[in-house]
Write a protein that binds this DNA or RNA. Structure first.
Lengths: 237, 237
DNA sequence: CATGAGAGAATTGTTAACAATAATTGTCAA
DNA sequence: TTGACAATTATTGTTAACAATTCTCTCATG
């Protein structure tokens, strides 16, 4: 239970807490850890083969980034963004990421472009293979990759946090089928980078973010009700 | 030594780590903790009357925000931003804060305006009284206050981090006399808020940030050399 | 006089035990 | 059967001791 890390089951000890944070980030982005999931210390200890201290530090870091909520004496839970928080996250993304795209367009080297092309191919591949988890994760990582190309680690960290929180928002308010991104829009942005057209890159990014935003219905909390229903109907053993 | 908290020397126990983080933030903004200062666990424990755990958690939080650097087995030091990091911080501020100002102009209520007016008066007062520490802190807090008025806690946290790191940058690369902000530019921004002129607010903020940026000389690291000299000349007991 | 080795002190990292709080189960009475 | 209450269990929060590493000071040596 609580299988966060896939693969290597063996000599995983000695893992540092940044790696733990990243693994949990990924699991959340892939929506394998839905909002509200309890992250008990014991589970995480055995999942990562580390002591309680590491787990505790990791949870604190996750909480400081709004991805996990620490409740006093009650433990850590995957955050459940409120409507207000969701609006704030989207607003922050619209503020930051268009400029990230602009800077990326100005600074992308040949190598960067190739890397982005390879990434988009992986995205397409994942979608072809119907690997939804992977597709969602790669889709989110595209945005982080852009920040990397923009050569600004400060903003890269911010984008990483915002992308992760967006996954939580989609998990709560999105309809079941929605993926994080339209892939074709990623291609368009990449095309703008190729053309070194920074204004276009920024505009396309803003448009792209608005599309993501319009796929979630923040006005109603029906998602949470649906959860209740599914629990009640699916749990009768 | 390491007098971070002023005032209340007595029953300060029970302080939670967010308060510790804020106190250190303030001390850094006021430039009472210059870049490179060692923050030993023992000092902080006695400074705040808390156990080692709290201090450790606080330092981790500060490190995750780029304000403190944790060196393995060697302890925590107030961060010394490199030239590259400084450029990134400024770039992030130019990305985020103009839009923060724009949103603030749209959303400021009468109460908000009054609060900002009061804040500017405190700034002027501090400058009149030649209270440099207070003046610097209030000057930085103006930017955070704007984010609060914009009603976006996500961006507020980002601005807080960026303002603090800017203080470090000024401490390292600024000439001794430079304060963080020109006060009159704050007034101009406030005037734009009053007029509900969001475009003007954004433009003024961008201009303001460029001015701050131009007051530090990132091309040379002379500041660090000065530090070295002062250390060598002042330490011969 | 400078340099390096080494012992001791100080500081940080980790573990484990203990205390405090919350969740769960079981019991009893209405 | 249901609801409240008590005892047990599980989980989190805290403290203290221990281990490991780094720092500092001394002293011998080139």
């Amino acid at each position: 239970m609580l299988k966060i890390a896939d693969g290597d089951m063996l000599p995983d000890e000695g893992i540092d807490e940044e790696a733990i944070v990243d693994r949990i980030y990924e699991a959340i982005i892939e929506q394998r850890l839905p909002p509200g999931t309890k992250l008990s210390e014991a589970s995480l200890c055995s999942a990562f083969n580390v002591g309680r201290m590491r787990v505790r530090r990791s949870l604190l870091l996750l909480a400081s980034r709004g991805v996990v909520e620490l409740q006093n004496n009650r433990g850590a839970y995957v955050a459940q963004p409120t409507m207000t928080q969701a609006l704030e996250v989207f607003e922050a993304r619209r503020t930051i990421e268009p400029n990230v795209a602009r800077l990326a367009a100005r600074r992308a080297t040949e190598t960067d472009i190739n890397q982005l092309v390879a990434h988009l191919e992986m995205e397409a591949e994942a979608r072809r293979k119907r690997d939804r988890h992977l597709a969602i994760r790669l889709s989110g990582q595209f945005h982080v990759l852009l920040a990397k190309v923009a050569h600004n680690e400060v903003m890269e960290r911010m984008v990483k946090e915002l992308v992760t929180r967006t996954s939580l928002i989609i998990g709560m308010y999105g309809s079941p089928g929605t993926s994080n991104c339209h892939d074709d829009e990623h291609s368009e942005i990449l095309q703008a980078l190729r053309n070194m057209n920074s204004d276009a890159a920024a505009a396309l990014m803003e448009q792209h973010l608005r599309h993501i935003e319009h796929e979630v219905d923040l006005t109603s909390e029906r998602k949470r009700e649906v959860d209740l229903v599914s629990i009640l109907s699916g749990d009768n053993s």
